[in-house]
Each structure stands twice: as structure tokens, then as C-alpha cells.
Design a protein around this nucleic acid. Structure first.
Lengths: 216, 216
DNA sequence: GTGTCAATTGACACAGTGTCAAGTTGATAG
DNA sequence: CTATCAACTTGACACTGTGTCAATTGACAC
């Protein structure tokens, strides 16, 4: 949290705007703040926003970047790299991601809404998603290396499946709409991720076998 | 009901508007049509739209209703009711739903976009979703009746999990963003649904056991 | 003809984004 | 002390798109 006030003195106007945007998004998930709302919250004129950001979309994008940076997302998600086995790695990444989602949801959601209409926002989303996909992919490849996956599994599709199952939207639906407590969500997603990847006789895994021509 | 369309000759203006809206949504998924676009496509003045629908949101909602009715959604999804066992029922419903999604996606997506800002649209979405949930719930209850679920499983949560996994958004991500072919999507979702419900030693199912106080 | 109903036409209010031009302020340099 | 420059403010405006209103047209019924 900590919307600042700690480093008491003077905050960069740009940073003040970012903090204000962030805070408005946390206060009211339902409605995207207007530029005038943000300006008021930042104690600055509406036009000042345009001195620092070319458009509302860009401002929102920068806010998510600011948030990622504040929370040190790279580091948090990279921790799973140190896990010894593929299984441990998958578990660590799933856990890290699932615990991160609730923190960034408010702001991320705004970006998702914008992405429906603004290509720029969609690009930003895709970029963030491919970072996540990288984490899942690394885990899947580690599983394959450990011999935990049947040979012939399409690791790309398996990664994509994990991305879809553990998406923002799934989290949103289960915890916000259906009111699942966080730990219920976490446990179920962990089980789901394991079920989707591990176990030789696993029905899910079987659907992800390469469907190319059989090897000679 | 009966929107008539049978009399090939003159089509009701209202129906013409609905058809035009539908067709615009199919042509261009990316951008919501404006009222003037719809009017032009329907060969009618912009103001005529307001003679038949109070607002753009309401027009979109009516379009999804028109579509559901055209495709006979109730009947299609109800077919699974005749399945003898719970397993067959789950399978039938999952298949029916997964095959229906691609047909309604274009229009449904528009409603999802509106739902981010318009409460009316969100209500309409929720209503449709609860119809789907009913289908999943019936299958889950049938499974429980058949003794295919461990006792103590929280059927409500299991239903919600199925809804989330088989949501519109998951379909969208896998098939539109990652370009999964339909039958790949279908096969994987069937396996996923089974994995999430069946099998006594199933890890996923275990996360859905009632967490209330242990029985005496 | 007269009434009526559906649709058209053109105007307007309103919200919100983004732009522009002309100030204001405050710090810093000479 | 003054000139200057950048950051910010003020107020105006263009543009897009929704929704509203009033006056008008045209067809059909009686």
C-alpha cells in the first residue's frame, strides 16, 4: 500500500499523478476515473496531466508500470527460478502469481477495460501477459526436463493453457464474483496447475499431445 | 414471442435493426458499432433506433436475446438433461456449451465490453451466466447422486469452478489469442471438466471439500 | 378529407478527451 | 535587480458520440 507521505518533502509532479491515479483505481474499481478526477486527486490542473502523459491510456499504462516497479514484480516472479525440480518450480510460480494478482487487480483491470477499445492498452496487456507466460513456460520446460511430462506433449499449448486457467479473468470471476476466499482460490489453482501438467495417465495432458505425424 | 421473419417480404423495422446490429458485430469484433453505424446498416434513421430501444445498451442486450432465440439456446443446452448418468450429463453439457460459444461470441463480447461500464449490461450478463451455471450445477448434482463425488464436496464451489474454467473469457483467450483450433479447445475442456469433478483421489476435487467443522 | 402511426429531419444539450494560447510563478543566472 | 526559462494554470474551443425534442412527411384506414 503506502500511497506515500513517507518521504514527506516534495514529490515529483509526475509521480504525484501516478500515485493519484493508482489510489483512485483502488478506491473505485467499478468506474474508470476521468482525467479531471485524477487531476483533482493529484492537486494539479487537468492540463498538467497532458504535460506528463500524452493520453489517458498512456497514463493508465504508466500507472501499471509504476505499480509493477513499486511491488518489484520481476523479483517476486523470478524467485521460482531457484526451485530445484520442475514440480517445485511450477508450484512456486503459481503461488507467486496467485498472490500477486490481488495486489495489482484494481489497476490491471482498468487496463483490461481500456484494452477493449484502445490498441495501445491491448499491447501493454499482451506484454505483461507474455512475461507471465514466460514463467509458466520455464516451469513446463523444467517439468519436461525432469521427465515428468509424457514425451510428445506440446509445451507451448500447455503453457497457454496454464496462462488461461490462471488468468486475471479467472481470478476475478472466482474471487470477486463468487467470493472465493483467497486461500481457496490458491489451493484450487495449484491443484489445477498440477493436474493440467503432471501424471502420465492424466486426461488433460493427453489432450495436449502433439497431433503431428507419428514418429517413424 | 415469435419474431416472425417467416414472411420473407417485409421485415419488422425492429427486427431489421437487430439483424443489422448482429451483423455489424460479426463483421467487426474489435469495435463496438455506433448508433449511426447501426442505423445506416439497417437502412433507417438514427432516431428510429430510439423509437424501438431506449439506449444502445438495451439494443445490444436485445440483440443477444434475439440471437439466443434464433439459435434456440435453451433447447440446445437442455439436451444434456436426457443423459442417463452424471458423467454423461457433464460431458453433454460441456460439449453443448463449448460448441455454442463460438456462435455467440461476437455478440456476447460486445455485451461483456459494455458490462464494464453499464450496470444494465452487467445484469444481462449475470442472467445469462446463471443459466449456464444451472446446467453445470445439474451435472454436478447428478454426479453426486451417482456417487461419483467424494462426500463432503462443496457442489456450489465445484459449479462455480466449472463456470470459471469454461467461461467466455477462457474460450476467447485460447482460441482467439492463442489460436487453438476448436476441437483442441473442446477436448481439453472436456478433460478439464472431468478432472475437476471426477475421481476420488483427485487433487482438484480435494480442494473443494467442505471446510466446515469436521463431522463428529 | 381526416386522423393516426411510423419514420424522417435537423437541431440541441451533455459528457469527456484532447488542443491551444495567453498568463502566472518561482528559481536561477548574469 | 532583472531577464529568462520551465513548469504549471486558466479559460476557451474542437470533436465525438449519446440521447432528446419538435416539426414534418407519407401511407394507410375509415
Amino acid at each position: 500500500m503506502a500511497i506515500d507521505t513517507m518521504s514527506s518533502e516534495k514529490i515529483d509532479t509526475r509521480t504525484r499523478i501516478l500515485k493519484a491515479t493508482w489510489s483512485l483505481l483502488e478506491d473505485n474499481v467499478a468506474k474508470l476515473p476521468r482525467m479531471s478526477d485524477i487531476a483533482k486527486a493529484a492537486g494539479v490542473s487537468r492540463q498538467a496531466l497532458y504535460l506528463h502523459f500524452p493520453s489517458r491510456t498512456e497514463l493508465l499504462i504508466e500507472t501499471t508500470r509504476y505499480q509493477d516497479q513499486t511491488y518489484n514484480v520481476d523479483e517476486r516472479l523470478a524467485e521460482s527460478r531457484s526451485a530445484p525440480t520442475g514440480r517445485a518450480r511450477l508450484d512456486a510460480f503459481v503461488t507467486a502469481w496467485c498472490n500477486y494478482v490481488p495486489q495489482i487487480w484494481n489497476v490491471g483491470r482498468a487496463l483490461l477495460v481500456l484494452a477493449e477499445t484502445e490498441p495501445e492498452a491491448a499491447d501493454a496487456i499482451n506484454q505483461r501477459m507474455s512475461d507471465i507466460a514466460e514463467g509458466f513456460e520455464a516451469a513446463v520446460l523444467a517439468l519436461a526436463r525432469d521427465g515428468d511430462l509424457p514425451s510428445g506433449v506440446d509445451t507451448k499449448r500447455m503453457t497457454e493453457l496454464l496462462c488461461a486457467l490462471l488468468s486475471f479473468r479467472t481470478w476475478e470471476m472466482l474471487t470477486q464474483q463468487y467470493n472465493w476466499p483467497h486461500d481457496q482460490y490458491l489451493k484450487t489453482m495449484q491443484a489445477l496447475a498440477r493436474a493440467a501438467t503432471l501424471g502420465g495417465t492424466n486426461e488433460i495432458v493427453e489432450t495436449l499431445l502433439d497431433s503431428g505425424p507419428p514418429p517413424p
